[in-house]
Amino acid sequence: MVDDLTAPVGSRGRGQMMGQGFAGLALVAAPLVLLIVLVLFPTVSMVANTFHVTGEGGRAFSLAKFAAFFADDYSVENLRYTLVWTVISCGTALSISLGLALYLRFSEGRIATMIHALSLFPLFVPAIVISYAMVRFLGPNGLFQLLLEKVGFTGYTTPYLTPVGPYIAFVWESLPLPVLVLSAGLAQVSDHAIEAARDLGAGPVRIFSQILLPQLKRSLLIGFALIFLGVVGSFTVPYLLGPPAPEMMGVYMQRTLGNMRPEEAQVQAVILMAVAAIVGGFYIATMLRNQRSR
């Protein structure tokens, strides 16, 4: 009904609607072609490639490439390393942002505004900038070490070039989106609902677990997915801050491709995509549900 009202005006309907259909499709055609050429086609051809081997008898279906990946200890170790640290980073970033979102939900004033602004700051900082900055801040003889020594703490060992280095940068980078998403979720719980619960004698823990948390399920899922998808395929942060071995999959793929072994890089990419697809599927499903319920 609303769409009918907003539709541009025509004399007596039908022909006009047809015209709109063509115009609409024509206008979205160009970016759609880009999406097909640069996303759909390469992905499909890549997946198809990894499931085939080309031998003397031509192209044949085979799982040999995947078998090779999983037979290689170093590859498996990289995959395991990537997943473990991605999940740890997600958990940390999600916990911190939940804490921040809760604090921001129940606070107001200048301090809260500043904390809000600080938590969104990473949105404006590209990965390459923060990676370099982290090297200088957390690295050996970096500013953080200097500050600790000034207050008398001398036992600092730098996380630079250890798995903890990229982990810290991941958490730093990942804060804003879950804070935004969780804040939006918390904003849907009215003050009245919380006051009513408090009137009935509910303590902070009960209010959190029984009133806020159920409302936040979807937001938490979306927050987790956003962080996971951002971290799992990252390159710059682990490249600059991480240990030489094991490698995150992004770094590994880049090196494989750089060594002119595109077929192996494809296998690595397909495996990573499959992992991401599980999380991405949850993300898309939750997003669809949210859009429907809006």
Binding site: D4, L5, V9, G10, S11, R12, G13
Partner: peptide
């Protein structure tokens, strides 16, 4: 009113 204005096409 909108049909008189021409903003909603009449059937």
């Amino acid at each position: 009113l909108r049909m008189i204005a021409g903003l909603t096409p009449s059937d």
